[in-house]
Design a protein around this nucleic acid. Sequence first.
DNA 1: ACTCATCTGAGGCACGTCAATCAGATGCAT
DNA 2: ATGCATCTGATTGACGTGCCTCAGATGAGT
Lengths: 351, 351
Amino acid sequence: MGKPTVHDIAREAGVSLATVDRVLNARAGVREVTVRRVQEAISRIGYVRDLSAANLARQRRYRFAFLLPDTPSQFLKGLHEAIDEAAAGLSADRLEIEVRHIAMGDHLALQQAFRRIESQRFDGVAVMANETPMMRDMIARVKARGLAVVAMITDQPHSERDHFVGIDNLAAGRTAGVLMGRFVGPRAGKIVVAVNSMQARDMVDRRMGFDEVLAERFPGLVALPTIEGRDNHEVVARVTAQCLDNHDGVVGIYCAGAGLRGITEVVRARGLEEKLVIIGHDLTPHSREMLTSGVVDVIINQNAGHIARSAARVLKAQCDGVEVIASQERIRIEIVLKENLPEGDYREEKT
Amino acid sequence: MGKPTVHDIAREAGVSLATVDRVLNARAGVREVTVRRVQEAISRIGYVRDLSAANLARQRRYRFAFLLPDTPSQFLKGLHEAIDEAAAGLSADRLEIEVRHIAMGDHLALQQAFRRIESQRFDGVAVMANETPMMRDMIARVKARGLAVVAMITDQPHSERDHFVGIDNLAAGRTAGVLMGRFVGPRAGKIVVAVNSMQARDMVDRRMGFDEVLAERFPGLVALPTIEGRDNHEVVARVTAQCLDNHDGVVGIYCAGAGLRGITEVVRARGLEEKLVIIGHDLTPHSREMLTSGVVDVIINQNAGHIARSAARVLKAQCDGVEVIASQERIRIEIVLKENLPEGDYREEKT
DNA sequence: ACTCATCTGAGGCACGTCAATCAGATGCAT
DNA sequence: ATGCATCTGATTGACGTGCCTCAGATGAGT
C-alpha cells in the first residue's frame, strides 16, 4: 500500500479526520489525551503530510513583497528582472511576488511601505536596505505579525530577519584583493579604490577586505583613499581622472560599487587598458562588454537570479516551517573572467 | 473570482469535464470541432492548468535513474551525496531518484543497466559517461520509449539527449590557463599538466583550452606533455615526481583531472608550495584543505549540488513538457580561491 | 435544561479516470 | 424508400486523490 494518509491516522487513532487535522495544524479544541493519541499514531505509521495537497485544499497563496532601493543602477535593474523571472517560474508553486522600489534614506517612505505590507496580508518580505535602527524596528514589527523576513544583498545582522541572502562582502573584498595582487604581479604601485558611499556597510566591508589582503600579502601595493561615486558615472569619471592626475604609479583600479562605466571611460580615453588591472563588481551588460573587450580583468559577481530564487525559496520554507538545503541557499562569490563568462546570464535570452 | 478551472472551460465550451480533460491531455475520442471549441474556450478565459492538483489526482510519481561511473573518486562521492540530498529535498515534489554505479567501459554492464531502466518504468535518466556509439544507441532507445534523458558532467553531443548538465570544458581549460598565466606572472617556465586519461573527452577539452590560452597570451609558458594519472594518486605522484626530475624551470602544475592528492604530496615533500602555482579541478575535502593551507592556488569547480538539482529539474520539466529557466540551469565554471571558498559546500553540515 | 469544550460528517479544492450513456451512422430486411 | 437492430465513436457523471473547513452533533458538567 501507498504512503499513509490522514485517513490512516484517523483509523489508527480512532478519531475523525477533522480531529487529526486539528492536531496536525496545532489548532485548539482537542484534549491533551487525544492529541497524544493522534501524535503517537502519526509517528507509528510514519505519516508525512503532502504539502501540495494541503495547499490545494486551503487554496493557499504565498504573497511576498520585495523591497528594493529606487537607485537606478544596472545591477538593480538586473535584480528586478531576475525577481520577475523567478516569480514567473514559481507562480506554479502558488507564489506571488510584488517588487516595490523605495527611496532609501527616506525614512517616512520606508515606514509607509512596511505599514502597507502589514495591512495587505503579505506572508513575507525580502528587503535590500542599509541597516538602521529604524529598519530593525520595522523588521521586528512585521516579524511580530508573523511574516517571514529575509535580508537581501545587504545583511541586517542585528535584526530579527530569518535569513540573509547575499555574499560576505569582507570575503568579496579579500577576493578582489588577492586577484589584484596576483594579476598586477611583482610590480609595486598604487591602487585606486572606488565605492558608492562609505555610508553603506557592504562598501566598507569590501574596502576592508581588500585592504587587509593588500597589507598582508602584497606590501608593494598601496590602496589610495577611497573615491565615493554616489551611484553616478560622471562623478566617478571626474574623480578617477583627478586621482590618476595626482598620482604616479597607479597599477590597478578596484571598483567596489556602482559606476564602473565612469572608470572604463577614463581608462579608455587615456589608453590605459593594457597597463592597469581593473576589477569591478556585478555582471551587467556594460561590465560584460568591458570584460569581453579586455578593458576589465575581473568581475566579482553575486548572481542576481540565484539571489532572487533563493530569497523566494527561503521565504516559502519559513512560511511552511520547513528546513532549506543550506548549500543551495549559499550565494557564492563568483569570480568572472572573460574566459568563464556565462552567456546571457545577467538577463534571459528569449527562446 | 479566482483563476479559471476546468469547470469554467467546460461551461464556456458547453461540454463536460471529461471532454475538457481529453482535450487538455491530447487524448483521442473528441471530434475536431469539439477540440477547437474547447481550445478556444481555454485561450479565451486564459486557463492555466494546476500541475500540482493534476499530479495529486493522477497520483503521479517521477522516477529517475542516475547512472554514474563506479570510479571511486572524491568528486564522484560528493556528487552521489549531492544527488541523494537533492532527492530528499525533491521527494515532496513526487520525485524519486535512484543512483546506480556502473563500470564504465564495461559495455555489457551499461547495456544491462539501460535495459533494466526500460523495463522498470522509469520516467527519465541522467547519465555520466563517455560518449560512444553504444551510448548513443542506448540513449536513442530510451528516448524512443519516451523517457527524458540528460547528460551529466560529460556531454553526449551527438546523441538525442534532451539537455546537457555540466560545464564547457574547453572554457574551463582556458580559464585555468589564464589564471596560470597571470598567477605565474612575468616569469618564463614550464607547466606540468596532468589528466585522468586522454581517452576522456572532457580531459582533452580542458587540455586544449589550457594550451590555447598559453599559446595566445603567455608565450613564456610551455606546457609539458600530458601526464595520465588513471584516477590513481600513486601513479600521479610517481609520474609527477619523474616529470619534476626531468625538467628544470617548472613554474606551475595544472591538474585537469582526479589525482590532485598525488600532486600535492610530491609538492609538499619537496617544499615547492611557494614556488609553484598549482591549479586543480573540483572541490573535495582534500582540495579544500589544500586551498586553505595555501598549497593549491586555484580550484576550478563545477558545483555538484547544482548539477544534481539541475539534472532533476530538467528531467522533470521534460516530463511535464515545460520550459526551464535557462539561466538557472547553466552550470557555472566556478573559480575558487582560499578567499572565496564557500563553507561546507561540498557536503552539508548537520544542523 | 443549558452551557461549553470536544469531536464528527459532509462537502470542497482542481484535476483525473472509467464505466456508462448517447447520438449518429451503418447494415439489413422488408 | 422505410423501419429497425446494431455498432461505434463522442460525451457524460460520478467518484477518487490528500487534505482542509465549517456547521452541527455529542457528552460531560452545572
